[in-house]
């Protein structure tokens, strides 16, 4: 893997205003380095802050969202760096899509329903180009057709269609093609296969594998589906109550989770392969972000909890020493005591 991270996030905090003088912290203390070509999954349950973090990385938060603290340093191909949080409006517009693009959640609703697919491509190709560059109508059409063929869609059928005329899987493919329009270095995908049928999910996953091999982009994808993370990610970070509580390679996270929450999450996934294992759900429900418990936010639901867990928020401590952001780290005082077993069975 290569030398410098493409994206370095430090001490990031994202808040939402909930009233005139009140706010909730939706993501806090987020730090990670992402290296070129890596694929990182952000996993967690609804409300854990994973979508907020994904949107925050491209500064696409909704109106009431703010980033009061932290930095997100992006390294361009030429080696220059820029803090995304300090970019001006124009700079940000050119950065989005040509450097980093997003595939939004819910393929069903991500397109404007009264615009043809072709118009979406034309808008994107016109709007986010580097300064001084312009494309002619023919060039726009040719590029759109090329992009759609890349995701195995028929341009002649899709470009003149309205979004409602396409199936969910076709829309998701078109959305991925749109995100790749300007050859971004980083692709953020928010729940790329949720709400799609199983066989369609499978074909999208294959598409992403193929595109990544071909274009070598760096990928962050947000999902609640641990199976998808196992399939697509080299690295996995688990989020709980706005914080990254464990991070490591896919093998670390799935075979040797050191945080009781990660372990519980994996054990709650129902398998199709093999015999019926003993399944356990995690007792209780996630805390409200407005009233986090003292100390470790998972404490009240944790079977390993001790008095010291309630004293301070445990920091994300490294368990291994590996380069390129592949270190296994966890925010649990009892990391060494966590027992994880899930029978690994092979597919016959």
């Amino acid at each position: 893997m290569s030398e410098e991270p493409i994206l370095s996030v430090r001490d990031l905090r994202i808040t939402y205003q909930t009233g005139r003088n009140s706010e909730v912290v939706a993501a806090r203390d987020v730090e990670f380095d992402l290296y070129p070509g890596q694929s990182m999954a952000l996993v967690g349950e609804s409300g854990c802050g994973k979508t907020t973090l994904g949107l925050g990385l491209l500064r696409l938060l909704p109106k009431l969202g703010r980033i009061p603290q932290g930095e997100i340093v992006y390294r361009r191909k030429d080696g220059t760096t820029a803090d995304i949080l300090k970019m001006g409006k124009e700079e940000l517009r050119r950065f989005r899509w040509s450097e980093a693009a997003m595939v939004f959640q819910g393929a069903m609703n991500a397109f404007n329903p009264v615009q043809r697919i072709g118009a979406h491509f034309a808008d994107t190709l016109k709007d986010h180009l580097p300064e001084g560059k312009r494309l002619s109508k023919t060039e726009i059409r040719e590029r759109s057709e090329e992009l759609l063929r890349m995701v195995r869609l028929e341009p002649g059928r899709v470009l003149p269609s309205f979004p409602h005329e396409l199936s969910g899987g076709m829309k998701q493919r078109a959305l991925i093609a749109l995100a790749l329009a300007l050859n971004p270095q980083v692709l953020v995908l928010d729940e790329p296969t949720t709400a799609l049928d199983l066989l369609t999910q499978c074909s999208i996953v294959e598409e992403l594998h193929r595109l990544r091999a071909e274009f070598g982009f760096t990928m962050i994808f947000i999902t609640h589906d641990l199976g998808l993370a196992a399939e697509l990610a080299d690295r996995v970070s688990t989020m709980y109550a706005g914080r990254i509580i464990e991070t490591g390679t896919a093998e670390d996270i799935f075979y040797d989770p050191r945080h009781p929450y990660t372990s519980g999450l994996i054990n709650a996934v129902l398998p199709v392969v093999g015999d019926l294992p003993q399944l356990a759900s995690i007792p209780g429900s996630p805390p409200s972000l407005a009233t986090l418990p003292a100390g470790c936010a998972f404490g009240p639901r944790c079977e390993y909890v001790q008095d010291r867990c309630r004293e301070a928020v445990p920091a994300l401590e490294p368990l291994t020493d590996r380069p390129d952001g592949l270190t296994h780290a966890t925010a649990c005082l009892r990391a060494e005591d966590v027992q994880h077993s899930r029978e690994v069975v092979s597919r016959a």
Binding site: L198, L226, G227, A230, E251, V272, V344
Partner: peptide
Amino acid sequence: LIAAVCEPDPRLA
């Protein structure tokens, strides 16, 4: 359908 299921197991995947 059954072959398309993603299991939370990177080696299996």
